[in-house]
Write a protein that binds this DNA or RNA. Structure first.
Length: 272
DNA sequence: TTCGTCCTGGTA
DNA sequence: TACCAGGACGAA
């Protein structure tokens, strides 16, 4: 669910609210969310450390703690990271609570139980992050990088855009939207793209992610920002989950195909 | 590279 | 009742 724009929105919203705050207690309601870690071990390790820095890398949220640990959060499909007053009504599907001094708590709520919260020693997070490709909105993400990493691959371009080792942060929604903006059919073999098409795709990826961030992410059902608010980008999508509706450009019907096990939405007339 | 799996709930 | 869902990993 949460892709780069959603995670960016969460982090930008929470960063000023949790920076410098200290952890006073923790609760684990479903141990799978912390990889089966013993609740007492989890608590002993975190309590007393303060949040020095909060950042995002790809779809990961990173909380750097001043005691030498890093909290890595990945929300996967339905995870939410919410900052709530302690006395606030329980959020449904709350799996982990990290209590902060000052009567608030960070809650990991997650309907489908895929989200993960991992504690590592500072430095160890680099092994996880090293597998990720460049940030799509950074200078490291160039047309050359995109074309060089994928230009010889035979797989459909749609499938490859979801590979986090190629670029970090794109998911199913924004991949479909980027391919629409670029006018590329999701089944196109990557090795068939021309220089000009790589340029269009590169530009389209950036544009669609920037618009997603501007609209504070896409909410279909589960996504909320760090304060529980839905995003607004679902009203601006051109093709994603619009099967049968009119293409904004040509008016023809949007089609849906399953590619690499993921649903893909596209306009067969505008995307070739 | 593709498929199943981890899970639960909403919708057709 | 069947199918669908925003992610990612490991096995075949």
């Amino acid at each position: 669910m949460p892709e780069l724009p959603e995670v960016e929105t969460i982090v930008a919203g929470l960063r000023p609210l949790v920076g410098g705050r200290c952890i006073s207690d923790t609760e684990i309601h479903w141990s799978g969310s912390v990889g089966g870690m013993d609740p007492a071990v989890f608590r002993d390790r975190l309590v007393g450390q303060c949040i020095a820095r909060m950042t995002r890398r790809g779809k990961f949220i990173l909380l750097y703690l001043d005691g030498g640990d890093v909290l890595l959060v990945h929300l996967r499909m339905t995870g939410r990271l919410l900052l709530r007053p302690r006395e606030a009504e329980a959020d449904p599907y709350t799996r982990v609570i990290i209590g902060l001094e000052g009567n608030e708590e960070l809650r990991l709520a997650d309907l489908r139980k895929f989200a993960r919260l991992v504690v590592v020693s500072q430095g160890e997070e680099e092994a996880v992050l090293a597998k990720l490709g460049p940030e799509p909105l950074s200078e490291d993400f160039t047309v050359e990088h995109l074309a060089n990493s994928l230009g010889k691959r035979k797989a459909p371009i749609k499938t490859l855009l979801l590979d986090q080792t190629v670029l970090a942060g794109l998911g199913n929604i924004y991949a479909d939207e980027a391919l629409y903006l670029a006018g590329l059919h999701p089944l196109r073999r990557a090795d068939s793209l021309s220089v000009e098409e790589w340029q269009r795709l590169h530009e389209a990826i950036r544009r669609t992610l920037e618009e997603g961030i501007r609209n504070r992410g896409t909410t279909f059902s589960q996504y909320r920002d760090g304060e529980g608010r839905p995003g607004g980008h679902q009203h601006c999508l051109n093709v994603y989950r619009r099967t049968g509706e009119a293409c904004p450009r040509c008016g023809g019907p949007i089609e849906r195909l399953v590619i690499g096990g993921r649903s893909s939405h596209f306009c067969p007339r505008c995307q070739v």
